[in-house]
Every structure is written in C-alpha cells, then in structure tokens.
C-alpha cells in the first residue's frame, strides 16, 4: 500500500499539472481573442439563451484560468479536480449533443476556428478521463504527507 502510494503520488502530480495546463491554455487562447469571437462560438451551439452569451463569453475564460491556477496550486485539489470533471462533463455533453444533431458549431475550446468533429470529441473525452483520474487520485490520496 505504501509503495503504491509512493508511485501514485508522482502520477497524481503529473496529472494535476497536465489538467491545470489544459485549463490555463483554454482560458488563455480565448482571452487572446475578443470576447465576441467566443460568444460567436457559444452561439453556434444553439443552446444558450441570447442574453447569456455575452456574460458567459466574458467570464468563462477567466474562470478556466482561475481553475487552472487552483488545480496547479494543489489547494483543495479534491474539490477543484471534481469541479474540473463536472465542467468537462458539461462541455463534452454539449459537444456530443451538437455533433449528433448535425449542428455546424465552432468548438471554441482553445480559441476560434476549430469546427466540431470526431477529433474534438476524442480530445475532450481524453481530457475528461484525465480529470476523473486526478479527482479519484486526489480523493484516494488525501494529503497523508501534508505537514502542519
């Protein structure tokens, strides 16, 4: 059990850094563009009410950056990893729904110009698996090494 923990902890750290990098990159590439471009991507999914497009387009990228920083810091990792899993589940559900309905949406996941397709779904599924693994790891390895 102890040796498993020794092996699991670096793996968790790697997963945590990778997950944080995904959220930081997603936020950064959206923030590089005008918020209107992300609003256009959101609008293409035909799922949000019009009045939500602007506030979501303006806040979601910053929320992704904040979540990336929180995951990277390791503070409250169980909860930030769980939140990232929930967010990625929502994203993947929206993408899958749009794909199945044949909606020609722009993913907007890492900035504009990425038409929704099987590659997008495969990538987002991988990210969700990573988030779930980090969440599970964080709960199973709850801070035995944390020093007061």
């Amino acid at each position: 059990m102890t040796s498993n923990r020794k092996l699991a902890r670096p793996l968790l750290l790697i997963g945590q850094i990778a997950l944080a990098a995904i959220f930081l990159a997603a936020g950064y590439f959206k923030l590089r563009e005008p918020w209107l471009q992300f609003a256009v991507s959101l609008s293409s999914f035909k799922i949000l009410p019009d009045e939500w497009l602007e506030p979501v387009a303006k806040t979601l990228p910053w929320a992704e950056v904040a979540l990336g920083v929180a995951i990277l810091s390791g503070i409250l990792l169980r909860w930030t990893a769980l939140l990232s899993s929930l967010i990625l589940t929502v994203f993947l559900s929206v993408l899958t729904r749009s794909y199945l309905l044949g909606i020609h949406a722009d993913c907007g996941c890492f900035g504009s110009g990425e038409p929704l397709g099987p590659k997008t779904l495969a990538r987002d599924s991988t990210m969700l698996i990573l988030a779930l693994a980090v969440t599970a790891g964080a709960f199973l390895l709850r801070k035995p090494n944390r020093v007061e």
Binding site: A20, L24, L36, V69, S73
Partner: peptide
Amino acid sequence: LLVRPALSVIPALLLVGACLAQTPA
C-alpha cells in the same frame, strides 16, 4: 509539495499579464 502553491502563482501571473497586455480586441 509545500512550495507548489506559491510556485503556481508564477504561471498565473504570466498568464494574466499576457492577457492584460492585449487590448480588448
């Protein structure tokens, strides 16, 4: 593990700086 929370501030600051360096559009 102890200093990681502090280290994570560095990429965060770089990222925020990079974002703020952009004009809104």
